[in-house]
Write a protein that binds this DNA or RNA. Structure first.
Lengths: 210, 210
DNA sequence: CGCATTTATCGTACGTCGTACCGGAAATAC
DNA sequence: GTATTTCCGGTACGACGTACGATAAATGCG
């Protein structure tokens, strides 16, 4: 039997509440007091379950990492790799704070290791060496994070930005930019699946050709 | 002649001091009070030159963007694009806070527009449509930022991480990861130039093939 | 010159944050 | 009972961004 006063909550409850808040209101709204309030505890009680806010973020990242669902590997690296990227994007769209929270957190838990494992497994048929496979998985993660960040940031065409671009184009110093803007949206943006295919296929193909 | 009390400093001085601090001590050490102290002013005086800290970050990003130096374009998109990526990496290595500061700041000033222009110019010979070129430049920026972040983060092999990986590998649930680790460093990490070449060449090649 | 006007300076202060500290509460072991 | 262990959470500290407003320093006008 455990000695001492029994805990009123669990680490999981704390992490879940934090994820719920971050999902709904963003990372900026995620404060220790807010989490405590959500689970009906005093602010300082959280420190029974989590050493500090930074570790809590680690735990959040690893926890949502467990939500990654992937179809069974087909053995075709192209298909499998794109599937991993797509699953990751889906995860990041469900948890928009994720791209901002990931950067420095290398391998924070088993779920992140599992993700890495999936990426490596998808690349296994290519026969690439270990460091290259690691690099490609890391690159893929970064790429997906960048894409989703751009995707979820509402494109903010602020007045001052419009003015800036307008006069820049008018100045004639940015001919390529002017051409692209003049062209309008006729080319249509490529979209995630196409971009992911280009990026990953291109990257692996080049690595193999080397 | 301007009326009123003349300013004791300039916006440039404020931005420069901020960059100096961020370069030397990181973004976390960049506080308004610290900047003010550095230039010998009261904290609140800064607000004469800058509306708030967030705009100051915009100004910092755009300012260092002016340091980008590129060799003359050769007309070969592969060479030119890699040159742009390399210059951007150099910039980020000189200002390690840059990758963290860029994310949401779309086109904060003329220097960032100039960077975009360079990227588009490098891609001009490919004949790709506007949106695709824009996407590729954005992807390139994100990729370089990811790479430099990984590069400048001191790889932190913390005890707990080592333990985590150790037991994970021992559990047998991560065969691919185990294989890569067992393989040792024989494959040698590819390095930026190689990676950039693979990524960009692969990406453009795939886009062209479409 | 004096005086109104304009602009910059910056001390004080407020609200918020992460979290150190520590007395009190709640459980078990003896 | 009492000692021991563990968790709870109020209070408080230092740091942050920055609103406010009194004060200072310049010009333009009489």
């Amino acid at each position: 039997m455990p000695r001492g006063r029994p805990p009123s909550h669990t680490r999981e409850q704390v992490v879940d509440a934090a994820i719920r808040i971050a999902d709904a209101e963003g990372l900026a709204a995620l404060t220790m007091r807010r989490i405590a309030q959500d689970i009906g505890a005093g602010a300082m009680s959280l420190y029974t379950y989590v050493p500090d806010k930074d570790r809590l973020l680690d735990l959040m990242v690893d926890r949502v990492g467990g939500e990654l669902v992937l179809p069974a590997a087909t053995g075709d690296w192209r298909t499998d790799l794109i599937a991993v990227a797509g699953a990751q994007r889906k995860l990041m769209l469900a948890h928009p704070w994720l791209p901002a929270a990931i950067p420095n957190r290398r391998l924070t838990g088993r779920n992140m290791l599992a993700y890495l494992e999936k990426g490596l497994a998808a690349l296994a048929p290519t026969g690439l060496d270990g460091p290259t496979k690691m690099e490609i998985v890391a690159l893929m993660t970064g790429f997906v994070a960048s894409f989703v960040t751009a995707e979820t940031t509402p494109a903010t065409p602020q007045e001052d930005q419009v003015a800036l671009i307008g006069e820049a184009v008018a100045s004639g110093e940015f001919p390529e930019l002017a051409a692209v803007l003049a062209e309008g949206g006729q080319g249509r943006e490529p979209g995630f699946d196409r971009i992911a295919d280009w990026t990953l296929t291109g990257l692996v193909t080049q690595a193999l050709a080397f």
